[in-house]
Amino acid sequence: MAAPEPEVVFPAAVSDLEWYEESEETHAPQIELLETTSAQEPPNPSESFCPRDCLVPVVFPGPVSQEGCCRFTCELLKHVMYQRQQLPLPYEQLKHFYCKPPSQVEDLVKKKPWTTAETNSRKCQQTLAELESVLSHLEGLFARTLVPRVLILLGGSVLNPKEFYELDLSRLAPNSMDQSLSTAACLRRIFRAIFMADAFSELQAPPLMGTIVMAQGHRDCGEDWFRPRLNYRVPIRGHKLTVTLSCGRPSIPVTAWEDYVWFQAPVTLKGFHE
C-alpha cells in the first residue's frame, strides 16, 4: 500500500462523515429526519436476528426518492465489500489513496520491475475502476426504471453464491410528487439498523471472492449495460442478509411487479488484499 500522507487523518468511520457532508447538497425538497423519532424504529431488531438468515427491517416515516434508493444500493455495496474484506479499506479511503496522477505510476512501471506496492496499486485501481463503473451504471438503471429488489452476491456462482445480501425496495411507495426524505438521514437509519443487527461480526474471514450485483428492473426499460436474466431465481442457500425498506404507506401490489425481471451486472467485481 502507498504510504499515507501524514497530514491526512482518517476518522474510524469516514464514510459516516461522507453522508453528513453530502446531505446538504442533495435534493432541494427535504424533510430533515429528527434523530429522536423513535416511533418508527424497527421493532426490536435483536429479536428478528438469526445467525444464518438475517432480516433487517427499516421503516422510514415518509417517501424516498429514486435517487435515494440508488444511494442506498451503492452504499450497501461499498459497505458489504469492505465488511467482507474484499477491499482492504473503505471505498472512499481507497479512492483517496490510489487515485494518483497516472503519469507518475507509469514512469515507475517503465523503469524497473514492479514492486509489490505497484502491483497492489494496479490491482486496486482496477478494482476501483470496476466498482465505479458498476456504481455509475446502477445510477443509470435507477433512472430508467423502478428497482424493487437488489442482490449483492459474494462467491460461488450467481445461482449458488456463498453469501448474499438483499435490499428489498418494493415496499417503498412509488416516487410521488410530495417531498421525499433526506437521503443522508435515511442512510444513517439503514446503517444503524444493520449495525444493531450485528450482521457482519460473527462471520469468519472470507477469502477473496467475486462480487456480482443483480437488480430487478422493468422488462421494457431499455437497459443495455446490465444483462437480463429471465430465468433467474433468488438463491436459497448461502449466508443471507436482507434489508427491507418500507415507508409506512400502502405499497405497490405484488401483481404490479410481474413485468420486472432480473438484470445482472456484466462485470464480476474482484476484490483485492494487500
Binding site: R219, D220, D224, R227, P228, L230, V261
Partner: peptide, 10 residues
C-alpha cells in the same frame, strides 16, 4: 436462441 440482451416474454 434468444439474444442475450433481449427481455421479451417467452
Amino acid at each position: 436462441h434468444q439474444r442475450s440482451g433481449s427481455t421479451a416474454k417467452k
